[in-house]
Nucleic acid binder design. Structure first.
Length: 277
DNA sequence: AGACAAGCCTGTACGC
DNA sequence: TGCGTACAGGCTTGTC
């Protein structure tokens, strides 16, 4: 299989969210060390990032789409996006970071939190609770029911795959889970939103919940490139259930047809021509 | 050595 | 006109 690259999507971020909350809620940020200013590029003055965090207590961790929102005991929120290759890791205090550790958080305790990101597409920033930077994001897939989904698809001539990945329509789905969802729904990626029958919309609605729900339960997907690891450095296991993503030329687990790969909008689409209409 | 994978933002062009 | 849509480029680096 070609080295499929994958950015952490909803399932991986949700796994991080729950582990971060369990490990760090209640902790007071003692020190913040930024060694890669690109990772905090939204801050014209990188020192303002540190200044707004030191001394703050972590109240909880939420998720909006693929963004992590760390609530603080101030009016600020620490926002983190993993980009393609970002990882958050819990490490022992005093640990030497890896080459690509760009931000380190120290607490009054034995563990630190490191933001590691080789490709630096990810970022962290501090914003106020209104979060204007995230205002464009659409609803979470789990918050969209069948009628809501029908509304999002109606009148749109855009390809289904693109709609699913459009963060302003629904937030949290990336290339990999979009392909798995469309296979589960038996729909081809290039179908237009407005052309779906009510039955097909229902299938898609169910598929979104099933695929993402199971992916969260399995703590996300870790592919051969091992780009995604959880807070403790462990892999997810949803890749064992992948039906199409990264499986070009292999038999479809449902119909036996060969999984095909097409390309649109600069993205790979894996799908089964045999059972996806 | 160079193509490629990814998400997201921006800019541009098009058709209705 | 303006909007929805499509496409391309920039950002980045490890892998093939």
């Amino acid at each position: 299989m070609p080295a499929g690259e994958l950015m952490p999507e909803l399932a991986e971020i949700e796994t991080l969210r729950s582990d971060l909350a369990a490990e760090f809620a209640g902790h007071v940020i003692d020190r913040v060390e930024v060694s890669g200013t690109r990772s905090v590029r939204r801050h014209v003055d990188p020192a303002s990032f540190t200044r707004r965090l030191v001394g703050r207590q972590i109240r909880g961790v939420a998720r909006k789409g693929k963004f992590l929102l760390v609530a603080l005991d101030s009016t600020d929120v620490l926002v983190a996006h993993m980009g393609m290759s970002g990882q958050l890791r819990r490490v022992e205090a005093g640990s030497v970071g890896s080459r690509h550790t760009h931000v380190r958080f120290s607490f009054c305790g034995a563990s630190e939190l490191h933001f590691v990101d080789p490709r630096t597409f990810g970022q962290m920033f501090v914003s106020d609770a209104e979060l204007p930077e995230l205002a464009h994001l659409g609803p979470d897939p789990f918050d969209v029911d069948q009628a809501g989904l029908a509304g999002l698809l109606s009148s749109r001539t855009t390809k289904l795959k693109v709609i699913l990945m459009d963060q302003s329509t629904i937030s949290g789905i990336g290339n990999m889970y979009a392909d798995e969802i469309l296979h589960a729904a038996r729909l081809r990626p290039e179908r237009q939103g407005r052309d779906l029958s009510p039955t097909e919309v229902a299938s898609l609605s169910v598929a979104i919940r099933e695929v993402l729900g199971e992916a969260v339960a399995r703590r996300g997907s870790t592919l051969a490139d091992r780009q995604y690891k959880d807070l403790y450095g462990a892999a997810g296991t949803y890749q064992e259930l992948h039906r199409v993503y990264g499986r070009e030329g292999k038999p479809c687990t449902r119909c036996g047809g060969l999984v095909a790969r097409s390309r649109s909008n600069g993205r790979s689409n894996f799908y089964c021509p045999g059972c996806q209409r």
